[in-house]
Nucleic acid binder design. Structure first.
Lengths: 144, 144
DNA sequence: GCACAAGTTGAAGTGAACTTCAAGTCAAGG
DNA sequence: CCTTGACTTGAAGTTCACTTCAACTTGTGC
């Protein structure tokens, strides 16, 4: 169970070293330092990075991810159950996103025929909810 | 069919005046100027704004919207059929987005039980189809 | 022991889509 | 005519999640 350098962690997680350092500045990951001040990571950090990346895919901001990570026990390495608990929180969010897009699609169906796009009548252009892109790739999320 | 000031257009479209001016700088909307250099809009601009806002909801960038708008006939006011044609292009995009989120959800279902989040096995953290690949392809991790 | 790849830092840059600001001009009601 | 609110501009600021840069230090393979 050797420790990983930031380069190794980057290669094995697929997360750029600059991003890892950025996460560390923000407190999302931790490392110990060698006598020469270089970062060394233990392997659980890989899982942590995986959680961060996956959470981003679900549309969470780093701040929200930070809050979620803060609920992990600090005194021990998180277990599968810990990660599972956090991941379960994704589900409603994901469901809501899907439902929202489906509403948009259905509305689109009924609006395409008329080409109306009236701001007054067409719920397509007059949303009650918002979809906004965020993060890498097309991720959608409801505003609040 | 009075012309609208930017304030009136803003109020009736729900788009901030600063955003309208920004769109105009980018060439997404047009206006004529009064002798005193103030903007005046004709009512079709309302529909154009509606199209822009709705397109954003579908996840399009302003640049893509700009390109879509460029296919409108320049010599006449766009008809309902024109708008309908543009809007039809939204549908596949929307479908793809929904499908993607559903895949994510299904994967989440099968991953929640195990709490794995292993970069090797869990497609949740190793999407491949969403995030643009940086560096050398998908990177895998052995258990830890 | 030395070359050189890999690591370090803080600061600045990126890009999307705006918003805010300052300082001034225009338009409409009384 | 005068006040007041709406409008004008360009420039700079905002947020998010990073990336890039420059100048320097560490760690490793031969």
């Amino acid at each position: 169970m050797r420790e990983l350098t930031i380069g190794e962690l980057s290669e094995r997680s697929g997360v750029a070293t600059s991003a890892i350092r950025y996460y560390e500045d923000r407190g999302l990951v931790r490392s110990r330092r060698t006598t020469g001040n270089q970062r060394r990571y233990e392997s659980p950090m890989l899982r942590r990075l995986a959680f961060i990346r996956t959470s981003q895919r679900v549309g969470l901001s780093l701040e929200e991810i930070e809050q979620a990570l803060a609920t992990l026990p600090g005194n021990r390495t998180p277990t599968k159950a810990d990660w599972s608990r956090l991941s379960r929180g994704w589900r409603p969010r994901l469901d809501a996103q899907i439902a929202q897009l489906e509403r948009l699609r259905d509305t689109l169906d009924s609006c395409i025929g008329c080409g109306c796009l009236s701001l007054k009548r067409c719920s397509l252009s007059n949303p009650g909810d918002v979809v906004a892109p965020r993060g890498p790739g097309p991720v959608f999320l409801d505003g609040h």
